[in-house]
Design a protein around this nucleic acid. Structure first.
Length: 920
DNA sequence: TAGGGTTTT
């Protein structure tokens, strides 16, 4: 290991600036270098237009901190409780650890083995708890598991978890933290011990076994599912027995009955939903907040929710009520906070009566920037675990690149000419740029002289890859002269995304993957040797004062740059080429702005109210959002009738909070009974909640093989003259009529079989398979399937809500052909998002001649906020002439200018029924 | 007239 570091540190690269074309003709090609350190010395990957060169530095973290001998650093923040470990952070010798391993670990929860103990806000019980010995690992795949870096710290982690209410685990990719730590905690049996201790004082045994499950939250569904499967394999159990996952539409937990699954991998949004009906998180003894550094909206809210549950449950295990005040640091407000204190007291009483053990929290983060977490959880213990990554060599440009697309193109070309073997991953901000670069690269490699081209230059290999040739082709994923160029972004159909993941086909020497930041966190690509980082991404921002969202290209953070770089070092040493100078890197923000500061909080505020948080302004946020944003949410919720003048959640608001929808859409749905179009509105809000239904391949360039035109033509079939929402309804109706789809709850193999059976035997012959129908109509099958699942879920919730509250939601209630009531309902739902057409611009003589229809451009003014807006070019009302006088919209988004999207024509007089001015 | 980063309930 050490020689890798030495070799790496000695890396020396000569930078030569040359024009790619000049190099391609007569320079001697470098043979494969034996020594890594000279891998790129024969050429430069800099952009020639900028007359720049890259200089190379070693990455400080990846080069030096990895592959070092195991180091444990455990420490507590001031005022913290004892870690029971060497709190100075000194290294512990391996010998010492081995000695400890098979002994019984006695955890003295009450011993004052630290002088800081008295300052601890956490009450300690007096009794001694004996945690079962850390014997050999149980389960399967033992060898692989013991090889993980985290294994070395197993005993320490368990001890820290037993001794502390909150532990922070800082570990990078490849340490095994997400799969191993929950299993360590489970197999130690400590949660059972704490649970038993908590009920010891109770007079009667509680009905359920509270506090014995571990919930591990993930920001993404796929991660939750795959992690659960992996841990199932490792512990040798079937899905849902000891280990299971719980994500929307997919819950494998408790197959053996109530509360039998002990480790649950869930999306953070799922646990958040659960907290609405159970703010104490009764079932759980420990919540593990994984990927905390990503600061996703839901993880951030969970931090506060978990802290609240901890405060209530901590107090329940002791008589020390003061600890409540200490934990809730923002209790200086008047009546609202009093109400929240009261809620907390009620929660505490309930926790006591149920005999809930204290809730343990484990925060797992990849970055070293843990100060925020430590400040949020004073007294938490921390442990750092090295990751397992190969060194990545870093390079910057000497001067800023004005055109990062051009720089990326030239860099890719130079890697192909002078680089070693290995695939390339290029990060660009958007779909258009990605498609454009794919086209440019394709052209470049096509133009290469045959001598330059590697052998087996089979063109258009896409046709040869099974199952791909017949699918919708974005027109840009092709192999030219041995180079397979793949594009990757979320809107791409899955089968085309798969191209980036597949192993290289015959005759392919290199894969170049051009991706959005989906490849930063959401997917993992194997075999990447070179990462090209343009330093930009698209970011959504929300300005609460105007209620406006914007989506623009902005700089990434240092943390993101590190994440991108890391993608090159997963299987072997890699190279990361940053298309910006080192000074530009130095000026980047350390971390990405948390999502909670960048979004409209209406739904979060409604959720918190649903959990009994009276005043979300004094809620304990990890990073508090601006008061204006929360105020704005109050205004909206007030206007929708979700809260009353005293900010109290109304029964209507309570119903809204139960629906997994944006408050505006929840309101729209709840209005539909009145207008007798529940069936239609259920469809519309489901379609609106899914990702984009319409697939539009190709970039804006002319090289998408006419696919852009084809898709537009296909979509026109569904287009409604009245706007986007009725168009979505048309798509769904047509799909139900013409396509066969078996719900996603069936395993995919079974689904396909069922589909075929339906076609061959029972189904009418005119029906098509879901996948084929979607391809033919350029519709995203994934999005449509999701919309369908959302619709089922919402239907079920509506039925339940009707049973409970007599809201009279008849999900089959349809307006049929009587579409006026449908439009009136949309108007009632979106009455706060109205725009009226601006007068047509003055006509010149030509166009004002008799008989010529003057063009009424789609320029509007919003009723709230009086902003000038235009209909988005992807709206089905874009370009309609004459443009409708009055519309409602679902989104207000600033990109190149201020656009309204999700636009539907309404009659202005319908609005008279609704209150205005409440938001002015 | 001109354009959808990524997630999740």
């Amino acid at each position: 290991m050490t020689d890798i570091i030495d070799d790496y540190a000695a890396f020396d690269i000569g930078t030569v600036v040359e024009e790619p074309q000049a190099i391609s003709s007569n320079k001697q090609q470098p043979k494969k270098r034996r020594r890594r350190k000279r891998s790129l010395s024969q050429g430069s990957y800099a952009s020639e237009t900028s007359a720049s060169s890259h200089h190379v530095t070693t990455s400080p973290d990846d080069g030096n901190t990895k592959h070092l001998p195991t180091e444990i650093t455990a420490s507590t923040t001031p005022g913290g409780s004892s870690t029971g470990l060497d709190s100075t952070g000194k290294k512990k010798s391996k010998k010492k650890k081995k000695k400890k391993k098979h002994k019984k670990s006695i955890i003295d929860n009450g011993s004052a083995d630290s002088d800081e103990d008295s300052k601890s806000p956490q009450p300690k019980s007096k009794s001694k708890i004996i945690v079962p010995a850390q014997g050999p690992l149980k389960g399967m795949l033992i060898k692989e598991r013991t090889n993980l870096p985290v294994y070395q710290h197993r005993a320490e982690i368990c001890k820290l978890a037993a001794d502390n209410d909150v532990i922070l685990v800082v570990a990078e990719t490849g340490s095994g933290k997400s799969t191993q730590i929950p299993a360590y905690i489970y197999q130690s049996g400590m949660l059972t011990i704490f649970a038993k201790q908590a009920i010891a004082a109770l007079k009667s045994r509680p009905k359920r076994k509270y506090g014995r499950t571990i919930c591990v939250t993930q920001p993404r569904r796929v991660a939750a599912i795959t992690l659960a499967k992996r841990v199932c394999d490792e512990l040798g159990c079937n899905p849902g027995e000891t280990v299971g996952h719980r994500v929307r539409f997919d819950d494998t937990t408790d197959v053996r009955g109530h509360d039998t699954t002990k480790i649950i991998y869930a999306t953070d949004g799922m646990l958040l939903r659960e907290a609405i009906s159970d703010p104490l998180l009764q079932r759980y003894g420990m919540v593990v907040l994984d990927e905390a550094h990503e600061r996703s909206l839901q993880t951030d809210v969970l931090f506060g929710v978990v802290k609240r549950a901890m405060a209530a449950r901590q107090a329940s295990s002791s008589s020390n009520v003061d600890s409540l005040a200490k934990l809730d640091d923002s209790n200086d407000d008047e009546s609202h906070s009093d109400k929240d204190s009261e809620t907390l007291r009620n929660m505490r009483e309930m926790a006591t009566s149920l005999g809930l053990p204290p809730l343990k929290v484990c925060v797992m983060s990849a970055t070293l920037d843990v100060e925020t977490f430590q400040n949020f959880f004073p007294g938490s213990a921390m442990i750092k675990i090295p990751g397992r990554q190969f060194p990545v060599q870093l390079a910057y440009t000497d001067v800023p690149q004005e055109d990062y697309l051009d720089a990326a193109l030239k860099t890719a070309i130079q890697i192909q000419k002078y680089g070693e073997e290995g695939d390339v991953l290029i990060f660009l901000p958007g779909q258009d740029e990605i498609e454009d670069l794919a086209t440019l690269l394709k052209r470049h490699f096509e133009d290469l002289e045959p001598d330059d081209a590697p052998e087996n230059g089979a063109n258009n290999i896409v046709q040869n890859i099974k199952g791909i040739g017949t699918s919708i082709d974005s027109g840009s994923t092709v192999m030219v002269n041995g180079v397979l160029i793949c594009v990757l972004y979320a809107a791409l159909p899955p089968e085309q995304q798969m191209l980036a993941f597949r192993s290289k086909p015959d005759g392919c020497t290199r894969k170049i993957i051009i991706s959005t930041n989906i490849a930063e966190t959401s997917v993992t690509l194997d075999g990447i040797k070179y990462v090209v980082d343009c330093g930009k991404h698209k970011s959504r921002e929300y300005v609460s004062s105007t209620g406006m969202e914007s989506l623009g290209v902005v700089d990434i953070s240092k943390a993101q740059a590190a994440q991108r770089m890391g993608r090159a070092g997963r299987v072997s040493e890699g190279v990361c080429l940053r298309l910006y100078p080192e000074v530009a890197f130095d000026s980047l923000e350390e971390t990405t702005v948390p999502e909670i500061l960048r979004v409209n909080l209406a739904q979060v505020v409604l959720q918190l109210k649903g959990m009994g948080v009276h005043d979300p302004r004094s809620f304990s946020f990890l990073t508090p959002p601006s008061p204006e944003n929360i105020e704005k949410s109050f205004e909206l919720l007030g206007a929708l009738g979700a809260i009353d003048e005293e900010m109290k959640l109304t029964s209507y608001g309570k119903e809204m909070s139960k629906l997994p929808l944006d408050p505006v859409f929840a309101h729209l749905l709840l209005q539909s009974s009145k207008f007798e179009c529940v069936d239609e509105i259920l469809t519309v809000v489901s379609m609106l909640s899914a990702e984009n239904i319409f697939f539009r391949p190709g970039g804006r360039g002319d090289d998408s093989g006419g696919l852009a035109a084809k898709s537009a033509a296909a979509h026109r079939r569904f287009a409604s003259h009245e706007g986007d929402l009725p168009t979505l309804l048309n798509v769904y109706k047509a799909w139900r009529k013409e396509a066969i789809y078996i719900s996603a709850s069936q395993p995919s193999k079974m689904r396909k079989k069922l589909e075929k059976e339906m076609i061959n035997k029972k189904g009418p012959s005119s029906k098509m398979l879901h996948g084929d129908w979607c391809k033919q109509n350029f519709i995203s099958g994934r999005a449509l399937a999701r919309a369908h699942d959302v619709r089922s879920q919402l239907s079920e919730l509506c039925v339940r809500s009707a049973e409970k509250n007599g809201l009279a939601m008849d999900i089959h209630l349809s307006c049929n052909a009587e579409m006026t009531s449908f439009f009136q309902c949309i108007c009632a739902g979106l009455f706060l998002q109205v725009a009226t057409r601006l007068p047509a611009p003055p006509q010149d003589k030509k166009s004002s001649r008799a008989g010529h229809i003057p063009t009424t451009r789609g320029h509007y003014k919003t009723r709230q906020g009086k902003q000038s807006v235009s209909i988005h070019p992807l709206s089905f009302l874009f370009g309609r002439n004459p443009a409708p006088k009055c519309v409602v919209y679902t989104d207000l988004l600033y990109t190149s200018k201020l656009y309204i999207r999700g636009v539907t024509q309404i009659r202005e007089e319908w609005l008279d029924d609704f209150e205005f001015g409440s938001l002015d």
